[in-house]
Design a protein around this nucleic acid. Structure first.
Lengths: 360, 360
DNA sequence: GCTCGTAATGTTTACGTAAACATGCGCTGG
DNA sequence: CCAGCGCATGTTTACGTAAACATTACGAGC
């Protein structure tokens, strides 16, 4: 459909009727430009050894035919796809999404595309399924944004030669892992509240199955113990604001509870609502600190003090790590920790001076 | 590695040293199983005309060599990648993320992979860049989650034969578009407040550049006019909670403002905070309705009445639409609207009976 | 003037798969 | 009893690209 004279050799018409999607090939361009297809290849890849004049001719032919390289053929020839696979359990959490976004951006900068491998439900079967689908997928390496215990039984089906980096987990001895320093962040949260003068800090933890929840809870416990403070009983939620609300209703009854460290901002949100409904003022009666720093957290009632995690950095490190592993082989496993940062807002303050003897 | 006897023909060793990632090929499997590679192909693709016995032998050989089909070769032969590209301006908004998630899930069900094409900043240049990168990318079709006006000048560089479906936009005459019924949702929001007895409804709109904001604002205006109510002045935010807060500070001063329709939940969140700080009770003094139904909205203070959008359905329809276009050609453009749903929570109620004469 | 070197370009081949066509064998029906 | 059919399997070829190798052509050096 161009201005080429009507002979049938202008563009290969073999299968155009059945599958009109593929445009011109190098051979077509070569024919039009009056050169060999190899010369077209050289121009397409910016290789030297082509006269400027020839180059111009070829480029003109490319434009006229709307040539675009066939990435399948390219991948076949080169033996690599320039594509990273990302396996993640739904796009449910703020952290995963931010990490994915950073991965996509960083991958693009390195000339890699990103293919998404969603896992509907976080069961062993589903994860195994994702990994086996992976086998047929055009990816050179995989980044897993998922807690590692779901990976354990799945490892077997990992295609040979496909490197893996895991975000949001903790198993540096068997995988390369990049994660935020959750323990450090949790410690900072606890210390912040202790420094403000609170006698102790309660913890609204994430679900039992979650390593992230586990690590934050452990760090909370450790920080309190280090400070010589007896940890109050652990309260559990499931990351959701609703679970935070339910936990908050219970915590509101604990009269000696003046400071709560919620394992994420969403639970903190529910907690704030429960405390408000029960007439416990934040931060006057109870200080609340969260974890994640959602964009909305600055607009909570009151604005939430929280721990900010640099997911952009996590994503970047994942991509660079996995590319490095592809280049230089799977040399050493290890965990890279990205520091967190305390964001101080209005939901934490020193405890109101209470009358002596209210508690030990 | 492996139990194959040591002759060098077991697995092609040509480039293993340089690029050890590619495993066994069909030829390798065929050699081990003592059949032709075509038979291996038939087994791999589940084609008939293979004895059960032969099939078993081939499968065994596949397992032993860890064979996985080379998707590049497959794509080259078949002329399609079984991959959809998704272009989206960052993963910033709830709706985009939910839509992307649904696209990924639905694509997987149809045997398609999803490749992500992030656009860092929503400028014409960036979008054009994404589209030209697209040309070299292994995708059969594209779904654009983006407002259409960014597409206009970019269209030119769309590779021929690549179908497009647009989510979150409105240009049914030139593209195939799937979107939630934002106008309908906005009308429902306004009517809900009018039905509760409010004299009029204020609107906290999204940014001027946004078509979505425009449509919601138009529908708000239309619904009021239809009801014979004079629309109050429009208040603008930029979708962020912070902008909602700033707008809320102003709205709190409007003593005859008893009902606000915020164009999204995040601005509604900021609005709630501002009203609270100014001592205006929600819903007693002011009713607030949002748009989006974030997971957190049920835990706002108070829980937010809002318009729920079915992004899962949007994503599903995008995938099915684009696959349909690939199969049957680009027959007709058009917009598919997915209905919205009013979720009634505690932030809206009938206005408190005010003394007569406070306003017309 | 002839050879040699180098730069520009052309030719061959292989990547792994799968369609199209070819072969060979056993069984059925007249 | 054998033609002929159908089924299981093998052989050839092409997909589009790019590495490796081959071939020109032209100018410099002797």
């Amino acid at each position: 459909m161009g201005t080429a004279d009507g002979d049938s050799t202008a563009v290969s018409t073999r299968k155009r009727a059945a599958r009109p999607r593929q445009g011109a090939s190098m051979a077509d361009v070569a024919r039009l430009a009056g050169v060999s297809s190899q010369t077209v290849s050289r121009v397409a890849n910016g290789f030297p050894g082509v006269t400027e004049e020839t180059r111009q001719q070829v480029m003109a032919a490319m434009r006229e035919l709307g040539y675009r390289p066939n990435s399948a053929a390219r991948a076949l020839k080169r033996g690599e796809f320039r594509t990273l696979g990302v396996i993640t359990f739904s796009l449910s959490t703020h952290g995963n999404i931010r990490t994915l976004e950073a991965i996509a951006t960083s991958a693009a900068q390195h000339g890699y595309a990103v293919t998404l491998l969603p896992v509907a439900v976080p069961t062993q079967d589903e994860v195994n399924g994702a990994f086996s689908r992976l086998g047929e997928l055009a990816v050179d390496a995989v980044i897993v944004i998922m807690e590692i215990h779901l990976l354990d039984a799945a490892t077997v089906s990992l295609p040979p030669g496909v490197q893996v980096v895991v975000a949001d987990s903790d198993a540096g001895d068997r995988y390369t892992v990049v994660d935020t320093d959750q323990a450090g962040g949790a410690r900072d949260a606890v210390r912040h509240l202790l420094d403000l003068g609170h006698a102790t800090v309660w913890h609204l933890a994430g679900p039992e199955g979650s390593f992230a929840a586990q690590r934050r809870a452990n760090a909370w416990h450790g920080a309190l113990t280090e400070a010589g403070v007896a940890p109050p009983p652990l309260v559990r939620g499931d990351w959701s604001a609703e679970s935070g609300y339910r936990a908050g209703l219970r915590l509101a009854e604990e009269r000696d509870c003046t400071a709560v460290f919620a394992a994420n901002d969403q639970m903190a949100l529910g907690l704030l609502r429960a405390l408000h409904e029960r007439g416990r003022k934040v931060p006057d009666d109870v200080s609340v600190i969260g974890f994640d720093d959602l964009p909305e957290s600055a607009s909570f009632l009151p604005p939430l003090t929280t721990i900010h995690q640099d997911f952009a950095e996590v994503g970047r490190l994942c991509v660079e790590g996995v590319i490095d592993k592809m280049r230089h082989g799977d040399i050493a496993h290890g965990t890279t920790l990205v520091p967190t940062r305390l964001v101080r807002r209005a939901s934490t303050s020193s405890p109101r001076p209470v009358r002596e003897g209210a508690r030990g």
